[in-house]
Design a protein around this nucleic acid. Structure first.
Lengths: 101, 101
DNA sequence: TTTATATATTCCTTGACAAGAATATACAAG
DNA sequence: CTTGTATATTCTTGTCAAGGAATATATAAA
């Protein structure tokens, strides 16, 4: 797992932005209105998300529409899923311990 | 998703610690040796991870054994998996667009 | 061209946080 | 009880990132 993705998501307002964009792509102003944030901060957060590769932007007239990118989230999903192995292994250890003890 | 978990994981050394503990529970010194970190920093990072609820500690003589806790990782897994819905929906939108256009 | 709308950028201040060094605490062994 | 081992804590310092305010840029509309 890369920490760039995690760092980008760890900021509360950015996480909210991501969850909003999960609903549908949004312009900067739409995000600002929906989350009651100031426009410059939204622009900055979206820039950070773009740098981290979590969103893409396509201009439409004066607006900039931001859209979630799948890849980093799929990687996060894979990483989180890879823990399943550990939990089941730990569970086995516990069971063996109880049987022997 | 709670940002506490993400913040804890976003720090590179803590992420390494988590990935090490995913192999098996470790004492502070074992972590320090494995990752070539200084003992105080490891103690601090483990403390942070414990505060965030990502690990638990059980004392064994002078040693403190740190173990990964399942819950936050399961929640992260659920959250990441919940994006699947969005990707498939976006894919549908794209297909419809191509057919109509 | 001016004016309005949408977004980006810059500067500043402040708070959080990570590392290093030194020290304190806990427990065990002799 | 002293010594050694394992871990935690404190203090300091430097860096980085977020918000606020102001301003710059881009595109559309009149």
């Amino acid at each position: 797992m890369d920490t760039a993705t995690l760092t980008a998501l760890a900021e509360p307002n950015r996480l909210k932005i991501v969850e909003l964009l999960r609903g549908q792509p949004c312009s900067v102003n739409e995000v600002a209105l929906a989350l009651k944030l100031r426009q410059p901060q939204v622009s900055k957060h979206l820039h950070t998300l773009a740098q981290a590769g979590l969103v893409t932007m396509q201009p439409v007239a004066q607006q900039r529409i931001y859209t979630l990118k799948p890849e980093p989230f799929l990687r996060l999903e894979d990483w989180a899923n890879s823990f399943q192995q550990y939990w089941t292994q730990q569970l086995d250890n516990l069971e063996n311990h109880l049987k022997k003890g």
